[in-house]
Simulated assay, not measured.
Amino acid sequence: MPSDPPGTGTDSSTEDTLDLRLVEVLAPLTTGAGGDGPGPADGSAEPPPDPDRYDLLGGVGSWGPVSTSPGTFRLVPVRAGRDLPVVTRWMNDPAVAAFWDLAGPDERVAAHVRAQLDGDGRSVPCLGVLNGVPMSYWEVYRADLDPLARHYPARPHDTGVHLLIGAVGDRGRGIGTSLLRAVADLVLDHRPSCGRVVAEPDLRNTPSVAAFLGAGFRFAAELDLPDKRAALMIRDRPHRHLL
């Protein structure tokens, strides 16, 4: 789970059922580069994310799409009325809950996400959309402004990422590694003041640590955070051309 909100997984039922649910709930994401299609299926009105709302990170919703080895990928800022059901479903997968600790009713996930949506823009919750299908949940955040900064030698504009893979079929295939590399590149491309991208996966989550290493992050230290023993992973801008 993240060190402190705002700032490493799908439902244990069949993958086919989940994929159908994703299409039904999140079909609007496939209509336009920013995912700002029609509102929730119940017809309630919810305004699309305001790009200026995320000025502490430079407008995450405008960073994509990008080409990756698994396909076309983009980050779409979460819209609570549309996206919370599927995020809650993913958080209640035991494989995810073991590290995020957000299993439970909708209200628990809603509180975690809304703390970011209603905050000052230092953390942006997003869906990762691959080839038009939402399949992962991300948090892109200003690590230098996060409680994490009390636990490592933070630098101005350090940018952090949290990730969970939603669909079981997308795990263990190297997709997470490819997407982490792509998102780190997006951060460095769109945030010239950011010298490095950081992450703090739970040390017990060896697949997550391996994915970060495969994406060009280096293991920098072990951190004792309030809720976990974490691996501090860093991807440095100066080393980017070597990756």
Rank of each mutant, 00 (worst) to 15 (best):
R218Y: 02
V168G: 15
V183P: 02
V183W: 05
H190L: 07
V161I: 14
T206Q: 13
I175T: 12
F217D: 03
D185W: 01
G176I: 04
T206K: 12
P201T: 01
P207Y: 07
D189G: 04
P201W: 03
S193A: 15
L188F: 11
H190W: 06
G195I: 00
A199P: 01
D185I: 01
F219V: 12
L179I: 02
S193I: 11
V197P: 07
G169D: 07
V168M: 14
R196C: 10
D189R: 14
E222G: 15
P207A: 08
P207G: 02
S193N: 11
R196G: 08
R173G: 10
I165H: 11
L179G: 04
P201G: 06
D202P: 04
G160S: 06
L164A: 12
L213Y: 07
A182F: 00
H157M: 10
D170Y: 13
A184G: 12
L163F: 13
T177C: 15
A220R: 14
G174I: 07
A211H: 00
F217N: 03
L203F: 03
A199T: 10
T159C: 13
V161Y: 02
T159H: 06
A215V: 04
F212H: 10
N205D: 09
C194L: 06
R196P: 05
L163M: 15
G216H: 03
G195W: 03
A199S: 14
V209M: 11
A215G: 13
G195K: 08
A167K: 09
V183I: 02
D158Y: 02
P192D: 08
R218S: 13
R191L: 14
S208I: 02
L203Y: 04
R191E: 08
L203S: 13
T159V: 13
L186T: 00
V209R: 03
R218N: 11
A215T: 07
R171E: 00
R218V: 14
D202H: 12
R191W: 04
S208A: 15
R218I: 08
D158F: 01
G172T: 05
C194F: 10
V187G: 08
D158S: 02
T159A: 10
P192F: 12
R191P: 03
I175H: 08
N205T: 00
L203E: 13
A184D: 00
R191C: 11
F219H: 15
G214W: 09
A182P: 00
A184P: 00
A220T: 14
V168P: 03
V209I: 13
L186I: 05
A210D: 04
H190E: 05
A221W: 12
T159K: 06
